[in-house]
Amino acid sequence: MTEPNENGDILSVESLKMHFPLRGGVLYRQTGSVKAVDGVSLTIGKGETLGLVGESGCGKSTLGKCIVRLLKATAGRVVIKGKDVTEMPQSQLRPLRQDFQMVFQDPAESLDARMSVGELIAEPMVIQKLGTRETRKKRVDELLELVAMPTSAASKFTFEFSGGQRQRIGIARSLAVNPDLLILDEPVSALDVSVQSQILNLLMDLQRELGLSYLFISHDLAVVKHVSDRIAVMYLGKIVEMAPAEELYANPHHAYTKALISAIPEPDPTVKRVSKPIEGDVPSPIEPPLGCAFGHRVSALNYEKSIGMDLHLREINPGHLVSNCPCCVE
């Protein structure tokens, strides 16, 4: 199912859905489903960073996992470099995995503690049958240098390193097969501020040098704004607003985006947070409200109008998409 991609997008996701079945009862029948991702469309161009923000449980990590096919989506399509990988069998998918790799949040958990750093970084090349033992060893050294680690690290184990260094190892590993697209799932959330900025700089440098495309998943809006070209805001399985980074912060249209931005505590004691925080919690994705999920949370005035509506994104300014929800968007 190969098709040319006219826009030159590295990644294009179309109406992706990931519904996890819920089973129960004596016969273990399906009793419902968790709509973790519920109709998401997005694209990422070459060398571009798309930031994906949202609160925990909104489905951002699930979306990332669907893209790299750690999960098989229930509906919709994921097209990477013109190839539809949504339903592709593993045998065909494996060689394609060279094009897209994932970096996980907690490097302490995602890196095998029993493997040396050299083995960890070389493993993707072994799986992809790239190079010989010698060339792989050379590549490991190159990669360690690329992420500013001493080459002597190759013979050590991950527990000998700090959190920031481990994340560098995780990034080196993801780069081993020369991918075009990295899915970065909260890559700096587990790190302290001073180390976080080191890793963010590294990611920005690597992107410039290697022309990488990033899907940068994070709940930290300041971090996302700093590294992204465009930003998508996700709420309960759906993207509610997507815009160029500056535009999104300067001119947010969706009530949820506004609430998120105003909730960030500014590291400046002379600025006082003015708006009242929004109330309530994210609703359960098992029984989502009938209408707009955010309108329901804040008991928006026009919530009733959104019930039964087909909520989707529409373009209001060039590149600025926002949900057509009647209660959250004026």
Partner: peptide, 16 residues
Amino acid sequence: SIPRLTNERKTELRTI
């Protein structure tokens, strides 16, 4: 080293 909303995008962050 904190990324701030007022920072210029994609500039190098100060680090320790």
